[in-house]
């Protein structure tokens, strides 16, 4: 039986879709059968990030309304065999799907796939309720900004009230230099407020923007630090114990030398 994981944040623009694409691709690299569901009806993006936009024929709303069979709507990824996408409808709205229909959909997909990743829309309305309806686990995304952390806190409360216990926290777009200067919340500050376990930290990396625009998830790019972070997170999703990534590798040559000789870097 597969596992249904919802990726949510409350606030928009913190990286839900990017994370869904990267973890999903990461799992497929490990040979897992994975399906990604975009529940952001009316504002779909996951297909673009995956580079599959031009292959869409049927979508999520077609499936729940019975216009097509579930298998017909699943789009196979261009790179990995076990990876599929169920896109959202673009010309409908969130009320076109009910939580009961989502639960049915998740149960159907559970039979076929190892992991079902649900890309949740921003907000806490109907779209959010649909996205979490069938989920077993949740990954809550936040960035080191007060507003994003506030929204994450609200989301964690709502997940707990829906019996989705022990959500895991992913802190995205961390800039170690800013944290060091005291201009950005540290991981410790965020975990202290949200009081849930972390699943990983992803550094702010311009490669992510490049890869997202190209429709190629960063997780398959060996040179990208964010890609490395997502590879580690993927392993943690599969239950492996991987230590947190040291984000300070972008230090200059001099500070690396200083470290080597035991000086404290400024």
């Amino acid at each position: 039986m597969g596992e249904v994981i919802v990726i949510t944040s409350g606030k928009g623009g913190v990286g839900k879709t990017t994370t869904t694409a990267n973890i999903g691709t990461g799992l497929a690299v490990h040979g897992k059968k994975v399906v990604l569901i975009d529940t952001d009806i009316g504002l779909r993006n996951l297909d673009v990030v995956m580079g599959l936009e031009n292959r869409i024929v049927y979508d999520l709303v077609d499936v729940v309304e019975g216009t097509c069979r579930l298998k017909q709507a699943l789009i196979k990824d261009k790179r990995f065999d076990g990876l599929y996408l169920l896109p959202a409808a673009q010309t409908r709205d969130k009320n076109s799907v009910s939580p009961e229909q989502m639960m049915w959909l998740c149960d159907e997909l559970r039979k076929e796939f190892d992991y079902i990743l649900i890309d949740c829309p921003a907000g806490i309305e109907q779209g959010f309720k649909n996205a979490i309806a069938g989920a077993d686990r949740a990954i809550v995304i936040t960035t080191p900004e007060v507003s994003a952390v506030r929204d994450a806190d609200r989301i964690i409360g709502l997940l707990e009230s829906q019996e989705i216990r022990n959500p895991r926290l992913l802190i995205n777009r961390v800039r170690p230099d800013m944290v060091k200067r005291g201009d950005m919340m540290s991981m410790e500050d965020i975990v202290d407020i949200l009081a849930i376990k972390m699943i990983g930290v992803v550094p702010d990396d311009e490669n992510i923007i490049i890869s997202t625009n190209r429709g190629e998830p960063a997780v398959i790019d060996n040179k990208s630090l964010a890609g490395q972070a997502y590879r580690n997170i993927t392993k943690r999703v599969m239950g492996e114990d991987v230590p947190l990534l040291d984000l300070n590798v972008s230090d200059g040559f001099l500070s690396k030398m200083k470290k080597l000789f035991g000086f404290k870097s400024a």
Partner: peptide, 25 residues
């Protein structure tokens, strides 16, 4: 007996004891 999170409102006629944090919001 848990953290009171953003968006939660507790209205009570009496005293309230929270065994956890009360978060912003």
């Amino acid at each position: 007996r848990n953290t009171v999170r953003n968006g939660t409102r507790i209205d009570f006629n009496g005293h309230v004891v929270v065994l956890g944090d009360v978060n912003p919001g």
